[in-house]
Amino acid sequence: MKSELTPPIGKISNVHGQCISLIGNDIDTDRIIPARFLKCVNFDSLGESVFEDDRKTLKGRHPFDLEENKNASILIVNSNFGCGSSREHAPQALMRWGIKAIIGESFADIFYSNCIAIGIPCFTLPKKSLEKIQNHCDNKFLFLEIDLKNSMAKSKDLRFNLEIKESSRKMFLSGEWDATSTLLENKNLIENKFNDLPYLKFNSHLM
């Protein structure tokens, strides 16, 4: 029933949970959620279809199908995770499966902003540290306590300094990652910009 999870709201300063490791570079958003699942007018039921084709191919051996991972919430990935399509359906599907934070070597730009926009903090770590976590995950359960204030992740016997864009970190701590209201605060500045832009004057026939 993970697909009925309530999306996060407000300040996010800690994420605590079990890690799930997904090995591979350049895992694209078509793989995270194949295009046929984009035929929907809301995101509600995407969780069950996350990695659908990869999971079918691996016949139950995909990390998202393993019994021991069913309560995991911190996804561990490699480099350029989420490349390709801008579909927010990808992080939405991960979130609705149960993912609350992602740690990887690097993320594709649009995927990263989509994660921030829906309240999934994404952190980076050097390749070596990731391999350490991924090996750890392979052998036994790894629980991490992520602290956004200090950009730290720790378990019983591991400790990492996480990297996160300072703007994203601050937005999570203040709760402003849900950007609409922050953007709306500058109503007058937006109006001024609208009135000032040269091309809106010579394109007035379109308005």
């Binding site: 801008s86 359906h89 926009a117 950007a179 937006i190």
Partner: peptide, 14 residues
Amino acid sequence: IGTSQVRDVLATQT
């Protein structure tokens, strides 16, 4: 952009 940003552009043009 993703859908949340589509929402932001619709609501604020920014």
